[in-house]
Design a protein around this nucleic acid. Structure first.
Lengths: 202, 202, 202, 202
DNA sequence: CCTTAAACGAGACGGTACGTCGGGTCTTGCT
DNA sequence: AGCAAGACCCGACGTACCGTCTCGTTTAAGG
């Protein structure tokens, strides 16, 4: 038998309290020590109210991130387009680096990544709801450049996006080395020009 | 720094049993459900023997990985060098992709990454003991190519390594899309040539 | 005084299972090896359910004894009163001796005494809830004899009770010598007549 | 196979340190929290040195008491004998009461009684080495009175001793009521005269 | 407007695991 | 050989949370 939760009767105030509490707590204690019990207590809510609507702490956290992002507006803002692709990408990637270095964002984002690593269903939801739209915006900027002839015509934009953001995200996640804005610049420059020597036959 | 325990009296057999048990269990149940209690039981060891020598399950797991890697030999094997950089990189990166898609390696490596994400001390140890040597081997192959004029002379090899492996690792960690050997090939090709159009002044 | 737990929601079946398990286990393994963990396992109950309602294994055991005694009826049965005080006291004291020599009662009672020896709060509860009513019954029998002129009119009945039961209990607790019914008889006779020679002015 | 401990090689200084530490600790933390580990640490001794010579913490404690008592001299001092039995007994019993009310003695003695209650072998040793000699001294005083015609000629002195000291010890052990010197006086008076009315044929 | 069924806060419950203490055994090196 | 030191396996401690399950009590829909 299936229990049909009547979402129309759902308490919106409890929902927001839970998501807010989850964000606060993940900042304070990290993902490992984040607990349903703790979220319920902080939110002033019964544990059952969380279990009724979410299957795990990871999904609560994910929805909390969704709330954050949708708080601003429906869709993520487009990337700047001054016509100078390299400058635009450096601007954006530097901002990303600074966000990732900000303790206010670092801990929660790391938590979200941990949640994804442990739950492939959640990973799919993340890909669709959060990462997907972001990636679309990035691809849009690259598409514009491609149409202006600044990128190779046969370039796979999915790969291209990974080429620019992948190294930065990976260095952040694995903490393999300090994440600096200089590094972001290097990645952009190198990705655009490639590893091989350019023809100097000018 | 003071070591409180007399390592000379340490039981090597218990140590190996613990590390082996940790690897087995992380494969079977994943990092989230890996417990010190479970490791101790599987290893036939008292919990205190684990707590005496390791501060957390993450550090146990890390040392288990160290044991695996040092089991083979001292240093990681050099990358193939046929003179054809692009082919060599594709060979290596395809192998990486296949390893990451193998459930036998996927779960434990994901676990290690989770552990690193939650413990920056561990991340530093990982960078030094596991990731560092691997990266050195990769850089060595690139250095060889650079000296052969196949790579830009002013190329930062650290960035170059990230450019090739970063996208793959990131796609794997975030599960943002299926990880295929075709993707590996694309990454190598794109990284080498860059996103910009090549001069067609042939 | 504030009760932190809502006793109205307390599970009566768990409570009884815990008390029963405690009695069984104390019989089987003795007080020293009685453990909260063991009681919980035997009762099919979580440890927390014990810690929620009792502060120590001693208090569990005490309440288990209370359950035993209140199981029979509200108040302890009155002592026999045939008019012959000496005979009645011997009857009762012999029964006490036999009970104390019965392994079924010896171990649990010894356990309760150990608990009392280590916890003065528990001792007060014991004095009020278990020992007190028993003592009142004993005093009642002595009062009846006193009114019949069989006991000294100025006799302190509290002291009198101690005089009859104290030696027996003490010999049992300290195991200073075998506890026999003959000894019980001697105690009654000696207590009634006193240590001094009686006037033989007949 | 039996391990023959060669007592001749035994370290007397370790033995004394252990017994002293046991006494100190039982005073500080009580019998329940007294541990072999704690005794060894306090005594500056290896645990094995305790396990080599004693089978349990109870026996260590018992030997510590033996050391205390034999410290004074070989045999316990005789009871006062002024010729006035009642006065002498009151003097002695009041002293006993005061000792039992002194926290310095109460805790260790209670500990010894707990140990005895849980170990009948120890109880036998206690009866022979500590309680026996004390009882003999008490009986000696009563025998003297008996020979002087102050006690019934057919009186069983073992019972008589229990009659005087039993009530006091029992009230102390069970904490059934406050233990006062007045109570000690009452016990002596009542024991000597008996519970029955004395012939008033003066 | 009034029922009535859900969602809700609270928190007890059977469990698992935590990290610690101490039990009793065993080994190592010193005296 | 006895000893101090302490690692070892083990059992229990008392606590934190898990996910499930009642309890009354709101609360919002629909009769």
């Amino acid at each position: 038998m299936v229990t049909h939760h009547n979402a129309s009767r759902r308490s919106e105030s409890s929902r927001r309290a839970i998501l807010t509490a989850a964000l606060e707590l993940v900042n304070e204690v990290g993902y490992a020590k984040l607990s349903i019990e703790g979220i319920a207590a902080r939110a002033g809510v019964g544990k059952q109210t969380i279990y009724r609507w979410w299957p795990s702490k990871g999904t609560v956290l994910f929805e909390a991130f969704l709330m954050l992002n949708e708080g601003e507006d429906g869709e993520p803002a487009a990337l700047p387009d001054t016509g100078d692709l390299e400058a635009d990408l450096k601007t954006v990637l530097r901002a990303t680096v600074e966000e990732l270095n900000d303790p206010r964002y670092d801990e929660p984002m790391r938590a979200l990544n941990t949640a994804i690593a442990q739950d492939s269903v959640l990973a799919a939801a993340y890909a669709e709801r959060l990462d997907g739209p972001m990636k679309e915006v990035k691809k849009q900027r690259l598409r514009s450049a491609q149409q202006a002839g600044q990128l190779a015509g046969d370039l796979d934009l999915d790969v291209a996006v990974d080429m620019v953001w992948g190294p930065v995200l990976n260095r952040w996640l694995q903490r393999s080395a300090p994440l600096t804005t200089d590094y972001a610049d290097s990645v952009v420059t190198t990705a655009l020009s490639g590893l091989r020597p350019r023809d100097s036959a000018s």
